[in-house]
């Protein structure tokens, strides 16, 4: 990507350490590396990995190093280097938080514990290479807090496990969605009404700006608070509220209009009533299968 990349110090560890020795020394001081008796070389290796991962331009490397979370990066590097005191500190300060985060992410005590146990083992390092454990902490580069990074890894594991589960196809190979919709003998027309609402809403959603759709997904699917959505989307919560309300009203108007071309007002209300019940069942089934 960068034509001068081969010439940068990133590809020459010794040159990298020499060129950025002062910034690394500042980082070591800020992160109290002496507390863990972490040598400069181990810290330089951790920094170098982060610089390479973020593809920082050569002239920005020192500023990048100065922006790193020194205490967390030093702690992670010390743990990766197998320094016992650092591990003790990590266990005391971060382990309870890791378990708490896992429970919150999984929304289930047992699943959360499994998730946390598995990650904790990897942080310690299950894989042994050349007689040394390889800790997952080597992938932490200090751009965020260590706790946020741990939450990100937990979230990744959790979402990927749900994703994996949702891809499983029944052994008989006949997905339930393929089954033709049957009409309700008690409420004739129900299936047709539900289908009409679904089609109209799909069309309205397809016209949305991707950002509006993301905002809706955070609110309706992930059920985040306005404040949380605002933080993820760089918006004030009052803006989130206003925009959500506006998008939702627009969608409703479009769906009403589409249905109104074929149905009376009473029939439209019946459509919503049926669709709310049926789609909720679909959702519950989908979520159950995803687990």
């Amino acid at each position: 990507m960068n034509p001068t990349r081969a010439e940068t110090t990133r590809d020459h560890p010794a040159a990298f350490r020499r060129a950025h020795a002062r910034a690394i020394a500042r980082l070591a001081k800020r992160g109290a590396a002496a507390r863990w008796k972490l040598d400069d070389h181990a810290l330089a290796v951790a920094v170098e990995r982060g610089v390479r991962s973020a593809e920082v331009a050569e002239q920005d490397v020192d500023a990048f190093i100065d922006s790193l979370r020194a205490d967390d990066l030093v702690l992670a590097a010390a743990c990766s280097a197998g320094i016992g005191a650092a591990w003790t500190h990590l266990i005391e300060t971060l382990r309870p938080r890791l378990y708490s985060a896992a429970r919150a992410i999984a929304s289930d005590e047992t699943r959360g514990r499994e998730l946390a146990d598995s990650l904790w083992a990897e942080l310690y390092g299950l894989e042994v290479r050349e007689g040394r454990r390889r800790s997952l902490l080597t992938y932490y580069h200090g751009r965020s807090s260590l706790l946020t990074w741990i939450r990100a890894v937990l979230a990744q594991r959790h979402v990927d496990s749900l994703r994996e589960a949702s891809r499983r196809v029944p052994l008989d190979g006949t997905p339930e969605a393929a089954a033709p919709a049957e009409d309700d003998p008690v409420e004739p027309g129900r299936a047709r009404y539900v289908e009409m609402v679904g089609r109209a809403l799909d069309a309205a959603l397809a016209e949305l700006d991707p950002r509006e759709r993301t905002r809706l997904a955070y609110y309706y699917w992930h059920q985040l608070s306005l404040k949380q959505i605002g933080r993820l989307m760089d918006e004030h919560e009052s803006s989130v509220s206003r925009k959500l309300a506006s998008t939702r009203d627009d969608l409703k108007t479009k769906v009403d209009r589409a249905l109104g071309e074929h149905l009376s007002r009473d029939e439209i209300e019946m459509c919503y009533h049926f669709a709310a019940g049926d789609l909720r069942l679909d959702l519950a089934r989908a979520l159950t299968e995803a687990r």
């Binding site: 994703r163 949702s166 809403l201 959603l205 809706l216 939702r248 669709a275 709310a276």
Partner: peptide, 14 residues
Amino acid sequence: AFDSILKSKLTDTS
């Protein structure tokens, strides 16, 4: 009802 429908439509378990 519309909010419920919207929620189910936006849930992407894949």
